[in-house]
Nucleic acid binder design. Structure first.
Lengths: 296, 296
DNA sequence: GCTATTAATAACTATTTGTTATCAATGGAA
DNA sequence: TTCCATTGATAACAAATAGTTATTAATAGC
């Protein structure tokens, strides 16, 4: 069975006339007769009833026609889509991100991407930074939005988003927007910091905020998740340092106090593998690099 | 693009090794190289990344593999199903029937047929006798259950069901099971008869019941549908002669009185075109002829 | 630096497909 | 009826396609 035979068959089902079908196929009638014959022989099924003066489909031929026409059309679609995939116009992109992205820049970016690239399917997963780093290197993720990536020869990156840090204190605390002037005021408190298991960098960044203020923080708990930290703070189990944007998406009984005059900011970086062969990725990156200028 | 090339492609996606794939395909490595190359050239898309030491799929190749594997499998299924259709083991049968069948033999028959021929799809339509007769001749119906078919050279038939006729009178009538002895008692009444538009035969059959009793009926209404006749009787617009089985399926305020000592019975005949090429039909008929002995 | 392994290429052969010429069957016209 | 035009099948041959063998260039591992 060959595709050519199926195409010949389909043409013959249209005309029900060997000579005319052959003409439309730019071959000669005996060639068509031979191919149809060999198709029937291979299937072991008579597809046409030829009564010297009239050609018509057998019931099996009718069924075969109907199904083969569908298959043939599908194959043509796949052919075209494959070409789109090769140019990157169609395809799949797997994206990982840390939790805070989903209440800052990410929704808008996804909206923009899906309307700019309607044939590219985005797969989104919230993950911790360390896991994303591994996944990008293994090729399991095409793109990751994470914090403070280390250097790696084959990884490229660009800063996507930044915002100030806030000190998060329980609602019951005596500190508030007006009387909080410096981290020195909380030198004696215990802190909830990001765990080192999710990479040293983010942990060290927060540590350095305290160090810059002249003290080493006492650590009561460690957690990767901002929302966990918020609940711990609300329950007076320590203070936390979080990106300011968390204020808008929590109902925890806490207060966000912007930390004044510090060099550290919460930053989200997009990272990807320089050697990633996914052709959709470069299109996406071009779009992202154009659009996303770091904002407050 | 040829099926052979797609099969070669799929094999290569399995092994990702030209020599091994060629071996499994019982061809030699350069032949495989050439076919893959020509497939890629025709698509205009590189499907494999060959780095002298390692062969791997490009993203477009991955997409193509996934889709082609499905298409190939579907084609194989269709191939096998086509063979079943040719032997009649799979297929479609279009059946027409008059209304009374659906509360007598038909449900049981359908149950039996679908369990005996799970791959044959039955399409059922309630129709009037005249329309079915036309449809069977045109090949639009494979099988029809109807009343009193005329003779036709290319139509075969068999008696499927018979039952006695009942005289249907309004509930308010003075006639009942004990005092109704003969059609002569209702010689002066007006009758609801089947319309001639649905064939003379059934009309004439009922007429003959009256004639045998020595009178020509006065016709108040004509209708093809038993349920219509029942409503007319309930509203005292005439008497009707109907197959006894209607008694079990109506809530109309009427009485069914079996007509004693008459030669006429209500008969349902299965008819089909002797030249119908549908291979499923002969299987079905064999089953039907074995099972269905006319019952009272 | 050598060897073994891998895919590509070229030249040739075998197989498949298409073409031309012809036939047998059949429906319609004379 | 007889004849003719039309149709699909068949046979012999030509063209195109696919497969084989021999060889090469590249590279990973010893």
């Amino acid at each position: 069975m060959e595709l050519k035979q199926l195409d010949y068959f389909l043409m013959l089902t249209q005309t029900l006339h060997f000579r005319k079908a052959a003409e439309k196929l730019y071959i000669v009638q005996p060639a068509l007769s031979k191919q149809i014959k060999s198709l029937e022989a291979e299937l072991g099924v008579r597809l046409f009833e030829r009564s010297q003066r009239r050609v018509q489909l057998t019931p099996a031929g009718q069924y075969f026609k109907q199904e083969v026409a569908q298959i043939r059309q599908r194959l043509e679609e796949v052919r075209n889509l494959t070409q789109l995939v090769a140019t990157g116009e169609a395809g799949e992109i797997r994206i990982g991100y840390v939790g805070s992205c989903i209440h800052t820049f990410l929704p808008e970016m996804i909206t923009g991407l899906t309307s700019a690239f309607p044939h590219i399917q985005l797969y989104l997963s919230e993950m911790i930074t360390a896991a994303m780093w591994e996944s990008v290197l293994k090729g399991e993720l095409d793109l990751a939005f994470l914090r403070n990536p280390p250097f790696h020869e084959s990884i490229e990156s660009t800063l996507i988003w930044q915002e100030p840090f806030a000190l998060v204190v329980p609602e019951t605390s005596s500190l508030n927007e007006t009387n909080f002037r410096s981290m020195r005021q909380v030198a004696g408190e215990s802190f909830i910091l990001p765990t080192r298991a999710d990479g040293d960098a983010y942990h060290d960044l927060q540590w350095s905020i305290c160090e810059d203020a002249g003290f080493s923080p006492q650590v009561s708990h460690e957690t990767v998740h901002g929302h966990t930290a918020l609940q711990l703070v609300a329950n007076q189990l320590g203070l936390a340092i979080l990106p300011m944007s968390f204020r808008e998406v929590t109902t925890a009984r806490v207060r966000f106090l912007e930390i004044p005059r510090i060099r550290q900011r919460s930053e989200i970086t997009a990272v990807w593998d320089r050697h990633n062969p996914n052709p959709s990725l470069s299109r996406l990156l071009k779009f992202i690099l154009e659009k996303s200028l770091p904002t407050p």
